Amino acid sequence: MDLRQLRYFITTAEELHFGRAADRLHIAQPALSIQIKALEDTLGVRLLARTNRVVTLTEAGRLFLKEARRTLDQAEHAAVVARRAGRGEIGRINIGYDVIGACSGVLSTTIRHYRRQAPEVELGLHEIHPETQITSVLEGRIHVGFVTRPALMLPKGLDAVRLAEWPLRVALPTDHPLAERSRVPREALVNEPFVGFTKSAGENYGLFVRQVVGFTPRIAYEADSGFALISVVGAGLGMAVVPSSIASINVGENVIYRPILGVTEQIGIDLVFRRDEEDPAVIKFLSIIRQSER
C-alpha cells in the first residue's frame, strides 16, 4: 500500500464511478481498476462493491476512507514541513552568548532582526563563557556563538562575522578616589586591587589587563561571570578593565566606568559558526545576519 493507491481510492470513493475517477486522476480506467484491486488484496478486504455498473462503498471501505484521508493529509503536511525545513523557515538554532553580548544589546538586536524574517524557528539561548562557546560551536553543542574577546583566534573549521566593537573602560566603586576623574591614568592603577575571572572561566584576565595597561595587575578577587565581576567591584573589593558595553550593569549605582588615558584597544563581538554548517535554518540565520551587517 502506498500513497498513490490511497489517492486513487479516495478519488474513486468520491466519484463512485471508475470512469470519472480515472479522468480526474488522468490515468486509464483499467490502470485504476488494477490499483484498487491491488489495494484490496493488500488489505485483504473489499473496499468497493461493483454491481451492474454501480459502485458503492462497503462498510470497510467507508471506514477506510476516513483513515485514508487523514493519512494523505498527514503525508502532505509532512512534505510541507520537510520543504519548509529545507528552506530554513522552521527548525531549531542553539545560540551561545556571554554577559557582555547580552548587556550591549547586540544579542537582542540581532535576534529581533532575525525573528522578523524567520518567526517560526525555535531558538535555544545558552549563557556560555566566550572560550567555551568556541569549543561548543566546534563540537556541535551549539550552532552559533556571540563571542566577546580581546582578540579572536579561531580554530580551523570555524569562521566569524564581526558585529560590534567597544572601547575599554575601568570599572570602579563609586566611592573610589579615582571615580572623581573623567579619565584615569594607567599609572594610577598600578597598585590597585583588581577583580579577575576564575580559571574555570577559561580566560587569562591578568594577561589581558597587562596587554592593555602595561603592567601585571594584582588580582585580589575572582569571579566566574561578568555580572559577578561587576558585583564584586560594586562591593568595593577591587576594579576591573571591561568593555564600555557592560556599563549598563550598575549594581545599585555602586559602579562607575571611566576611560583609561592612553588606551585605544577595543573589544569586539563576533558571531562564530562552523564553516561546513549544513543546517538550513542556521545557514539562513547567517545569511540574514550578514545582509544586516552590510
Rank of each mutant, 00 (worst) to 15 (best):
R218N: 14
R181I: 05
D41E: 15
A235G: 09
H113P: 10
L168T: 07
D23Y: 02
D73H: 14
H143T: 03
D270A: 10
G252D: 12
V190A: 08
Y97P: 12
A102H: 05
A13C: 07
I134M: 08
N191A: 15
A179V: 12
R149V: 13
G226W: 10
V272T: 04
R210P: 05
I27T: 09
L237T: 06
K66R: 13
V54A: 13
R181C: 03
Q74W: 15
Q291M: 11
R115K: 10
V272Y: 02
R141V: 07
G234Q: 08
V55C: 07
V241D: 01
L47R: 06
R149Y: 00
I95D: 11
K284C: 03
V184L: 02
G238Q: 03
Y221M: 04
T198G: 03
V282I: 11
F215Q: 13
P243Y: 09
V80I: 14
L172V: 09
I36F: 06
E203I: 15
V106I: 13
V263T: 05
G145E: 02
L207S: 15
E14F: 02
L178F: 11
L286V: 01
R290Q: 15
A49F: 02
I27S: 03
I288M: 02
R20L: 07
R162V: 13
I134E: 10
V54D: 14
I283D: 09
D279A: 10
E180R: 12
R46I: 03
R53V: 11
